[in-house]
């Protein structure tokens, strides 16, 4: 995806990231976040959560991956996310994005980001500033 091919209002292709326990375990080890809240459903329930939860920063990683899938080689300059509700491990999720602004001088695009949980509730909103190739 090149800057010249992008239009205001374009939707990014939706993705359905893998939020299985195996992937979350891999993530928490790489991210220094190996806590039972993320990897043990029973422990998480004892803390009042609906089950083991997907780390917020992992959601951010999924949204970045969606951007890279849409525009391989793109450079994310800034990614700002608000975590609104928990997402439970071993359920399903959907990532969406839309182009909301174009900066022609710097080949930057502004992208709205949302992540929905398995019930269709928005669990993450955010924006990214992305540099694209000519």
């Amino acid at each position: 995806m090149r800057f010249s091919e992008v239009e205001l209002g374009d939707d990014l292709p939706e993705t359905h990231p893998d939020i299985s326990m195996d992937k979350v375990r891999l993530f928490v080890k790489a991210a220094y976040m190996d806590f039972p809240r993320f990897t043990d459903h029973e422990f998480a329930k004892s803390e009042g959560l609906p089950g083991a939860i997907v780390p917020g920063v992992m959601s951010q990683g999924f949204l970045a991956a969606m951007i890279h899938q849409w525009a391989p080689g793109a450079k994310i300059r800034k990614l700002d996310t608000v975590f609104r509700t928990t997402m439970v491990v071993d359920t399903s999720a959907t990532c969406r994005g839309a182009v909301t602004d174009l900066d022609e001088d710097n080949r930057l695009v502004e992208v709205d980001l949302t992540m929905l949980n398995h019930e269709g509730v928005t669990s993450v909103i955010g924006t990214a500033t992305v540099e694209l190739a000519d």
Partner: peptide
């Protein structure tokens, strides 16, 4: 504090869409 929208982007979005 939790808003991420620029006002001018709202405007151009409304018109584009």
């Amino acid at each position: 504090d939790d808003g991420r929208a620029k006002v001018d982007n709202y405007c151009q979005w409304i018109r584009k869409k």
